[in-house]
Design a protein around this nucleic acid. Structure first.
Lengths: 339, 339
DNA sequence: GAAAGCTGTGGGAGCGTTCCCATCATATGC
DNA sequence: GCATATGATGGGAACGCTCCCACAGCTTTC
């Protein structure tokens, strides 16, 4: 693999000129530019990542950081898709992606990366509001974008409208005539879980219905907690359930079945996320479609903007969601009943 | 963030000595070593990644490469879990992980990374036997480990015993009395798919049964192909189906249902992978448990060994699998029938 | 028509390490 | 007691780039 200097020698110009061509500096004559490009192509020259990083103080590497431990977090398709969004955007913008899933000494390592300029910026998939990492990143001055809202005024983030979407899907259940609508929440440490619960409350209030604490079960997004939650809720005879994740909805469905009840005839069920499985469930799950991929792409684009101009004001982007109405909420059933 | 030189000045020793301490070189007196360590700790010094990479020609960065395009490949829990295995092993061995999912100019970018010494090695999740990337890596001399077997004698790989596992699970169906056992294969470009098909054939032969081409449907691992495949197989009245992935099994299940048949009473169904969903299906899916996480960890460890000693012979590791017997194969049913 | 501005180019310095060789003590061998 | 090995340390050079300043040759300006 040739170096800048070799290309320079080959074309009879200086190191500097080749560097200018590579970096698209305008102050090179067209003739020289073409000659140099030709040699670069012919020799397959590519600038050395580390040399660049050292000399320029930026590396074209961005880090994607997903806290939550060594656990199989990527088994959750949400994170996988988010990551592939980040990766594909990084790729098309010609950046490298460093992946950090660790938990051990996490803060330390990220700090280290950022502070020594090993990476130019960080996309942080922070589910929690008060992530220690957020503070570390903030105080180190490293450009970063959070996936998931953050109330700190200095933080740029991208999120989906969790609250509005939860309100919409709960209202959908209410519109269908359900009155004892229960919910299984996500892990309350996560802002998304809190927002979805707020949306649920909003909808009930808009319909003038009381918020019954016994119809709210605190889960943690996992299938297991959906099952446990449903078991507990069943004692209070809900006629509909809003699970704050599709995985919890899937667990709830199993539990409803185990109790000898039918979905949607006896209990309507809706979820959140629209994971691939949702459409394949029996009955197909009514849920909220959110594009994790788009969040990832958006986050990366925002990060690159931030790196280019770190002085600008923080940006906050809220992506829209869509209701995916399928059979599990009983839409069809009810409307047929009406006729 | 301080530099080597600053630590040196602070402790009154030279750059070189500090470097030796950092790199655990034995030729430093205990007294000096301790003094330097203290300063390093106190100042929070960490060596600069790029400077190291430039000077030493190795970077402590390894790349994980998953071909297959920008598509949502990580939506498949298999890849997510594999990746988290790689990531956690990289972390515990104090290496950084560069993630590459791209497809555009893929070969080029990986080459570039490897050849300019930006990364020390590559873990390649190659499903295909004759990946162009494999050849590129091989000819560039970059240390790499393939996840998925490769018949090229120069390639180190880690894989699971796909053929043996497929034989075992098919034999399990045969042992239960099924005689018209069909299979839905994975994408035949993937070695895993071919191996699983061979295992299926092995089992039939061991039972002295003919291989019926009409009972073999060529799928591609996806849920959709499972459904399509099942629709086609139904015409030939199988009494059991071995789907080469759990996702295909899930698709097949829906199709069986749509045809008014029951699992396992009318058709027994088994899968492969043991994705989290498998145990939650209705009925729970009998399948082959393979640990993608362990594959990832193993691959990374092998890669680090290879980087340390590139001259050694290629290593091939085949990880064991387990049968996860649940209700979908009708084990219970049949054994009850016997009594 | 001389000062001032552009444009295109070249080369030195420096980024923070590692590696190699030189140096200087001190210990070892005969 | 003098050559020689051994241990601990220092400093130059190099890795491949970017950045800054210098400078030659033109064009513009009043």
């Amino acid at each position: 693999m040739p170096t800048l200097e070799e290309i320079a020698e080959l074309t009879g110009v200086s190191r500097s000129t080749v560097s200018r061509v590579v970096n698209n500096d305008s102050r090179v004559s067209p003739a020289t530019r073409e000659k140099v490009w030709e040699a670069i192509q012919r020799k397959g020259y590519r600038p050395n990542l580390h040399a660049r990083g050292l000399a320029a103080g930026r590396s074209n590497i961005v880090a994607a950081v997903i806290p939550g431990g060594i656990s199989n977090i990527l088994a959750d398709p949400y994170f996988g898709v988010l990551l592939s969004g980040i990766a594909s955007a990084a790729d098309s913008r010609d950046r490298y992606l460093l992946l950090s899933l660790s938990d051990v000494d996490f803060k330390h390592r990220v700090d280290e990366l950022a502070q020594q300029g090993a990476v130019d910026g960080v996309v942080l998939s922070s589910s929690e509001e008060d992530e220690p990492l957020t503070r570390a990143l903030l105080s180190s001055g490293t450009p970063f974008v959070s996936v998931g809202r953050n109330s700190d005024g200095r933080v740029s983030y991208v999120d989906v409208d969790n609250r509005g979407a939860a309100r919409k899907i709960t209202a959908h259940l209410l519109r269908l005539g359900h009155r004892r609508v229960a919910t299984i929440t996500g892990d309350p440490i996560a802002t998304a879980a809190l927002d979805r619960l707020d949306g649920y409350r909003d909808a009930l209030e808009a319909y003038g219905l009381p918020i019954r604490e016994q119809l709210i079960f605190e889960g943690d997004f996992t299938e297991a907690s959906g099952r446990v939650g449903m078991r507990s809720l069943l004692e209070h005879h809900p006629d509909a359930v809003f699970a704050a994740s599709d995985r919890m909805a899937s667990g709830a469905l199993n539990e409803i079945r185990a109790g000898g009840l039918r979905v949607p005839e006896d209990i309507a069920l809706v979820g959140f996320d629209d994971i691939p499985l949702a459409a394949e469930m029996d009955p197909p799950l009514t849920t909220v479609r959110q594009s994790a991929k788009q969040m990832g792409e958006t986050a990366l684009e925002m990060l690159l903007d931030l790196i280019d101009d770190p002085s600008g004001p923080p940006r906050r982007v809220v992506l829209p969601t869509q209701l995916a109405v399928r059979a599990s909420c009983g839409s069809k059933l009810k409307s047929e009943r009406k006729e």
